[in-house]
Write a protein that binds this DNA or RNA. Structure first.
Length: 559
RNA sequence: CGGGGCGUAGCUCAGCCUGGUAGAGCGCCCGCUUUGGGAGCGGGAGGCCGACAGUUCAAGUCUGUCCGCCCCGACCA
């Protein structure tokens, strides 16, 4: 039992003016966290308790699948990152010591764990699953939203090593299961979706997205529950366009001043979905490519990146002039020398396209007949699309990425030289996977998903304390004593008890208790003692009643 | 890195346009009263007005540069 009068729980009546996300506001107001610099936060005692509860859940689930906890340092020799090639990532923090030796403050620990994995010499020592909780540093160009995106944060990162892909499959599935269990225990609603592995350089990967009022990802789900994906890779079946009459060959039409799809569709009196939109881009290799999507669609940058196999940028005015002989707004796929990547939605039907002549468009352009594109899914799924699995409606929700697991194979073991001798006597690279989860993001997601207008409603597994006992003594020693006895009794029974013994008025204690959000609130006051009782209430509003002091423990423990 | 916004008391903010002794509410400290949903009265503490450089008799206020923070975008295991 701890006395609130002696704790550092600086609750605030008002949220900081610049806070937008609910979790940001409530965690700051509740005295859980404080900002030190952009994207850099302190966990105050209450916040650290919650963080540690999340950590313990993760630890138990990792241990349950054979994970071995360890700890790798933050300060890491730069050479390791040179060997993996990740030294080129702009987000890494670098520094030098006084002798000029260079270090990296890691964003993850693949390099370091692989450095240790070099001690694995034989297939007899495999598989291995190692993990740690440690501070990650990322020079994010833009942090935001309280705990949603930090520049420094603690992550549980686990690494598996196996002798082959089959072994990796097993490790991957085990971690997937462990993740589902840990998020379930943390009271988080989430979807496991296929995702891009991004800068980790992986193959298969699964993202765990928790729907939230604020977040960095968009979760796309089918109303029938048979499809879930991150917007970046989500497939959607677009509606069928309302096509105008077809033509035997493209027919030129004057469209003066129509440089946007809206203007074009209006001028021609047609459905915007029956037009095509041309997006000329230049790859890092300097190659000009025309991306073509339906007029009502947006080009998906991650998909385009995947299709091109390289980063790219929009083409400049001069580059466009040179290649198309026309300016933006009148570009199309016909009569040009450059490669055309057309979205799948343009495969069937006849569309209006730019004529590559300023102020003119072409009616009835058909892929295959009039131009020969490379088809690829490069459109961003959007509201109104149908599910690719069952045709049901798709929902789009903002979400927090609370975990990400992926296979990296020999991505690190080869460059770092981590190999083992297999049963057949052949030296082979270790086959690895990484499994990351951010406890702070789990906290933020829990708050985003569980709160009301008065404050946080913690899942019981994450709450900083199980029971919040309020002494409404108004200066009465007898009431204070009885309240403290009850708090001590509950604590002796194994519950984490926060005892509000502060010399504050009732209203303030109620407000703070709601804000902090412990699952059970127990009030001892003059009124209740007259009945030899206490008022008990669950924070989620499911029950509230007056029970005899002797029965409080039983009440707390039921359901 | 582009666009926008904001830096004044612990917090939320006025004051800046039109230069002239730095303010309010909440919080904090003391006293009295009060005590079941953020009390009342009285007294009090608390400021390098983000930094630097200009303009001026005089700068929180005008000008410039820089720094910090937030939001949108770019970016992002």
């Amino acid at each position: 039992m701890v006395r609130q009068s002696q704790l550092f729980i600086p609750t605030l009546r008002e949220a900081p003016a610049d806070a937008e996300a609910i979790s940001h506001k409530l965690l700051v107001r509740g005295g859980y966290i404080r900002q030190v610099a952009a994207g850099v936060w302190t966990f105050l005692p209450l916040g650290w308790r919650v963080h540690q509860k999340v950590v313990q859940i993760i630890r138990e689930e990792m241990d349950a699948i054979g994970g071995q906890e360890m700890l790798m340092p933050v300060l890491t020799p730069y050479e390791l990152w040179q060997q993996s090639g990740r030294d080129a990532i702009p987000e890494i923090f670098r520094l030098q010591d006084r002798a000029g030796r260079e270090y990296v403050l890691p964003m993850t620990h693949e390099e370091t764990i692989t450095f240790h994995a070099k001690e694995i010499a034989s297939y007899r020592q495999l598989p291995q699953l190692l993990y740690h909780f440690s501070i990650k540093e990322r020079d994010e160009p833009r942090s935001r939203g309280g705990l949603l995106r930090l520049r420094e944060f603690i992550m549980k990162d686990a690494y598996s090593f196996d002798r082959d892909e089959a072994g990796l499959d097993v490790a991957f599935r085990n971690n997937d299961r462990a993740y589902r269990r840990m998020f379930g225990r943390a009271g988080i609603e989430y979807s496991a979706v296929q995702a891009e592995s991004g800068m980790m350089g992986g193959k298969e990967s699964i993202d765990f997205l928790a729907p939230s009022g604020s977040g960095e990802n968009t979760l796309v789900t089918c109303e029938n529950g048979d499809y879930a994906a991150d917007l970046e890779v989500a497939l959607g079946i677009p509606r069928t366009p309302d096509f105008p009459p077809a033509h035997d060959a493209p027919k030129e039409v004057a469209t003066p001043g129509a440089t946007t799809i809206e203007a074009l569709a209006e001028q021609l009196g047609i459905d915007a979905a029956a037009t095509s939109k041309a997006m000329p881009v230049v790859t890092t290799g300097g190659k000009l490519v025309l991306g073509l999507v339906r007029g009502d669609d947006r080009l998906s940058e991650p998909k385009m990146l995947g299709t091109l196999g390289s980063d790219y940028r929009p083409a400049t005015e001069e580059e466009i002039r040179g290649a198309f002989g026309a300016g933006g707004g009148s570009l199309g796929p016909i009569g040009i020398e450059i490669e055309v990547v057309a979205d799948e939605a343009l495969r069937d039907g006849h569309f209006v396209a730019g004529a590559n002549r300023d102020g003119w468009h072409l009616l009835g352009v058909e892929a295959g007949r009039d131009y020969a594109p490379r088809f690829s899914d490069i459109r961003e799924a959007r509201d109104g699309d149908r599910c690719p699995t069952c045709g049901g409606g798709l929902h789009f929700q903002t979400a927090i990425e609370v975990g990400h697991i992926f296979k990296f194979g020999s991505r690190y073991s080869e460059p770092l030289g981590a190999s083992f001798l297999d049963e057949d006597g052949i030296e082979k690279p270790l086959i690895g996977g990484s499994y990351g989860v951010g406890p702070a993001r789990v906290m933020a997601a829990a708050v985003e998903q569980h709160h009301d207008e008065n404050g946080i409603v913690w899942p019981t597994t994450l709450a900083p304390y199980d029971v919040h006992v309020l002494s409404l003594d108004g200066g009465s020693n007898e009431v204070r004593t009885r309240a403290e006895e009850l708090a001590a009794t509950l604590a002796a029974a194994g519950l984490d008890v926060l005892f509000d013994d502060r010399d504050e008025r009732p209203g303030e204690k109620f407000a703070d208790a709601d804000l902090i959000g412990c699952p059970v609130r127990v009030i001892v006051g003059k009124k209740t003692l007259d009945d030899g009782a206490a008022d008990v209430r669950r924070r989620d509003g499911s029950s509230e009643e007056r029970v005899a002091i002797a029965d409080v423990l039983k009440w707390v423990r039921q359901d």
